[in-house]
Design a protein around this nucleic acid. Structure first.
Length: 661
RNA sequence: GCGCCCGUAGCUCAGUUGGAUAGAGCAGCAGAUUUCUAAUCUGCGGGCCGCAGGUUCGAGUCCUGCCGGGCGUACCA
């Protein structure tokens, strides 16, 4: 149990008589939190104020009553009542020291106990589309999902990761169409994935061309016309006499003008895009030669789904090299999955899902499509198109059915970007109506990765940035930094091979850490310079902190394993030693917070704070040159615990450390 | 139109579910290196937490209304 949990339990016990019942006591006990400032102790109980309100007694009096009932002399100094009724709790140095000593030999878990009642989690993350190159958004899903998986597992839950690969969608119709019309057997034999990517891009461009010309551009033109007429209508309308109405009227006009400007800009952008495609004579010729390519692609997809022998054979031929390519990326990221059941896995279940939804009266026909209409939602959740084809809504429902039957999870987490929140709201609501109302569904949504311009991260030419190129660049930059730094030393300490290993870990770590350190719900700007910075909350800084702590053992000729097993004790006389010691013990609290909100950035924040506490300790407390042998050993034990906490924390985030850098 | 998310220092971002004087890094200024990794550390300056009300012992955090931005919104995923 974490110190926080222990303190809450003690406070809850003290509160039972005061707060009318166990449940209420636990509620108020939850108001025990770590203190923000050292002068307020290590933890504070904030429950006396609201409780005083409820009991109609002065909060300080209530606080005194709580303190009177509190049995914590084994953990804390005498509690202090401050301000309006805060109860400040300061841990006894001896308690902290003993707990650290007890955690020290626990090499893997650092004294972190497994949860008392484990739950079963299915985690759905990464989910790339086969044949469509992976991009930054996939990294974020992969990295956040993997971190949550590792943390949940570490704290003792049963975890199942399942990579829901998109291997059955329209993109395959594109590739099949592309292969039949533009395929190059020799190129495929030589390098299958690049050839398939070429076909995907080509067909996608042609489909886009026609969609642009026949639908998007005319629609934009209509919108411009609508906006124009609205503006002129408003301008012609009589100005109201009432000043307040006048203001509203003026605002409406300016809003309409703003919308008009937006519509015109959008039209110009689409027009420019079309012109660009038009000006490429090759693209233009191909587009003219394939006027109904959009429908044809859907037809190829439908044929695949219907079991067409040719298309199925092509699918079976194309899938393996695509999966191999994706696996290569996972290998580089150090990510593995328990299962990778793609969309195609559910092919046979889809008709049954729809049938069952109809049978239960949940799905109704509307405009020829089978829809689930949900309370409070205008747009229906479509489970079968009017042409008979199934959608990802159908697959997702079939997936829920399978996962519930197969693994009986308490929770299913989907790590998918925030733009799909509407889909997941509908999916979860439908699943509950369907009978899966006893499971926690969570859309672990995350924000968009932006470029320097504040727009979604793209290359200069506007295409999305390929994943491997992204990793390559990070590693390349890391190598330059590592080398420059090492060269600047009086005597360089790293061999060329070592530099390469360090660069790989620092570079990949930088990208992962940047994804994890930001609050997942917000967008963030992708910047190599920032993520590879040696100061601030970055992987490089954390890895450096680790290397710095670790080096002490080599320098001092100390074997950490022997030290842990020895009778050496820990003393916490210096404030920096004490602060570091308390921080180490709070590792499990950080993990609890990650699990509570599914937010890995609580762990990065914790690790950054821990590294800061270590820096302060490092500045103030000589370790190898400590005045006495016991003090030296005590400090070495702190260093060892710090190093292992940093390494374990980073490891849970999927980031590797190095001993020297 | 409707729905969801966001607005915190010049910039990039945190903010422990309502707690005490709002924090980091970068950038700026001033310091620390015969030292255990200076890829570091210490200090200073910098804030009507978008605006206006409300809820209460207490609001960056909750509610309402505005302003500004992003995303989504019937057969792609």
């Amino acid at each position: 149990m974490s110190i926080l949990a222990e303190l809450r339990a003690r406070v809850a016990t003290a509160l039972v008589a005061l707060a009318e019942g166990d449940q209420s006591a636990a509620e108020f006990a939850a108001m025990v939190l770590p203190s923000q400032e050292a002068k307020f102790g290590d933890y504070q109980a904030n429950c006396a104020m609201p409780l005083g309100k409820r009991l109609g007694k002065p909060p300080r009096e209530v606080a005194a009553a709580i303190v009177d009932k509190l049995r914590i002399t084994d953990l804390c100094e005498t509690p202090e009542i401050a301000g309006p009724g805060f109860i400040n709790l300061k841990l006894k140095d001896a308690f902290v020291a003993d707990k650290l000593k007890a955690a020290s030999p626990d090499v893997d878990r650092l004294g972190v106990a497994a949860v008392a009642s484990p739950r079963t989690f299915v985690l759905d993350y990464s989910s790339p589309n086969v044949a469509k190159p992976m991009h930054v958004g996939h990294i974020r899903s992969t990295v956040i999902g993997d971190a949550l998986y590792q943390v949940l597992k570490f704290v003792g839950h049963r975890t199942i990761s399942d990579n829901h690969i998109g291997d059955w969608g329209t993109q395959f119709g594109m590739i099949i169409y592309g292969w039949k019309h533009f395929g190059d057997e020799a190129a495929f034999a030589k390098a299958p994935v690049p050839e398939l990517t070429r076909l995907y891009r080509l067909v996608n461009t042609l489909v886009e061309y026609h969609a642009l010309r026949d639908e998007a551009l005319p629609a934009a033109a209509t919108r411009v016309a609508e906006c124009e007429s609205r503006v002129s209508q408003l301008e012609l309308a009589p100005t109201p006499a009432d000043p307040a109405e006048q203001k509203k009227h003026a605002k409406r006009i300016s809003q309409a003008e703003g919308q008009l400007a937006d519509a015109r800009r959008e039209y110009r952008e689409l027009e420019a895009k079309l012109n660009q495609l038009d000006s490429d004579s090759k693209t233009r010729a191909l587009a003219d030669a394939h006027p109904t390519i959009g429908q044809a692609v859907l037809a190829e997809t439908a044929a695949l789904h219907a079991g067409d022998a040719t298309n199925k054979a092509l699918w079976q031929r194309f899938l393996p090299p695509c999966l191999a390519e994706i696996d290569e990326t996972y290998q580089r990221l150090g990510v593995t999955f328990d299962h990778a059941l793609g969309e195609s896995f559910y092919e046979d279940a889809l008709a049954g899902v729809v049938e069952d939804l109809k049978l239960k009266g949940l799905a109704k026909s509307s405009d020829g499509a089978l829809c689930v209409f949900l309370a409070g939602q205008e747009a229906p959740f479509i489970v079968q198109k009017k042409d008979g084809a199934f959608l990802y809504a159908t697959t997702d429902l079939a997936t829920i059915e399978y996962r519930m039957r197969q693994w009986r999870p308490d929770a299913i987490l989907y790590v998918v970007d925030h733009r799909q929140s509407f889909h997941f709201d509908s999916l979860f609501a439908t699943a509950r109506l369907w009978g899966y109302d006893n499971v926690e569904f969570q859309h672990i949504s995350f924000g968009t990765v932006l470029g320097d311009d504040g727009k979604p991260f793209k290359t200069r030419s506007g295409s999305s940035v390929g994943l491997s190129g992204l990793l390559d660049e990070a590693v390349e930059r890391a190598l330059a930094i590592v080398s420059a730094n090492d060269d600047a030393r009086p005597e360089p300490m790293l061999s060329a091979d070592e530099r390469q290993i360090v660069a790989e870990r620092v570079g990949i770590g930088a990208i992962k850490y940047a994804d994890l350190a930001h609050n997942r719900t917000s967008d963030y700007k992708f910047s190599y310079d920032k993520m590879l910075a040696m100061t601030g909350n970055t992987a490089a800084y954390m890895q450096y902190s680790y290397a710095r702590v670790s080096s002490i053992f080599g320098k001092g000729g100390v074997d950490p394993a022997q030290l842990r097993a020895s009778s050496a004790t820990i003393t916490l006389d210096h404030p920096a030693e004490r602060a570091l010691g308390v921080a180490i013990l709070q590792f499990s609290e950080a993990l609890d917070r990650v699990v509570g909100d599914y937010r890995p950035n609580y762990l990065t924040d914790y690790l950054y704070d821990l590294a800061g506490k270590y820096s302060s300790f490092f500045e103030n407390c000589p370790v190898l040159k400590a005045e006495t042998e016991p003090l030296r050993n005590s400090r070495l034990l702190l260093c060892d615990l710090t190093a292992r906490t940093l390494a374990r924390g980073l490891n849970l985030l999927g980031i590797d450390v190095v001993e020297r850098m």
